[in-house]
Design a protein around this nucleic acid. Sequence first.
DNA 1: TGCACGATTCTCT
DNA 2: GAGAATCGTGCAA
Length: 201
Amino acid sequence: MEREFYERDTLTVARDLLGRTIVHETSEGATAGIIVETEAYKGPEDKASHAYANLRTGRTEVQFGPKGHAYVYLIYGMYYCLNVASGEVPGKPEAILVRALEPVTGLKIMARRRIDVSDDRRPNLTNGPGKLCMAMGISTRQNGADLCASPLHIDAGVPMDKACIAQTARINVDYAEEWRYLRWRFLIHDSVFVSTRQQIS
DNA sequence: TGCACGATTCTCT
DNA sequence: GAGAATCGTGCAA
């Protein structure tokens, strides 16, 4: 996708990311998956965001930079989460968390990276933010990578029909007070590759 | 310098 | 549904 794709309202981009394909080319080979679940985090005012109150540190720095770059961080000391910097306001720290993929390329490589997961349990390869990073070989080494020009990028794929998209509250942000209830999680309603059916009515 | 904790996952009950 | 694994980060001291 072009830079302009990410330089739009973050909620719009989060929704529009569904159906697109993330590709990562490494020395081990290429892996790719269709995005089936995202969450939006909107800068200074969002208590669920790492950049709440414009908190600018080494970790959140990428969110303040050019849109379309990868924000990758370590969570619980053992998993990584992949985000994309986005938003129509330059310098405003907003990002989209990629929560789940439908694997399409490099399944063998994914299974090898995902310890204890065999090919016959395909959804389990990438149906969660930590899982998909492990399967795609994404770590903080990719933090700051330009998704418009790097081995890690996003292809247009097939735009998702609006009728297929469900919208719910975000997952595991109970600490965010009133912001926890915002329905800023987008997912493909009938996909078996999403992280959880939680809150889908 | 110390310390509590997390945008998670896996295992066991 | 509960509990453990595990460590960089942010903030207090």
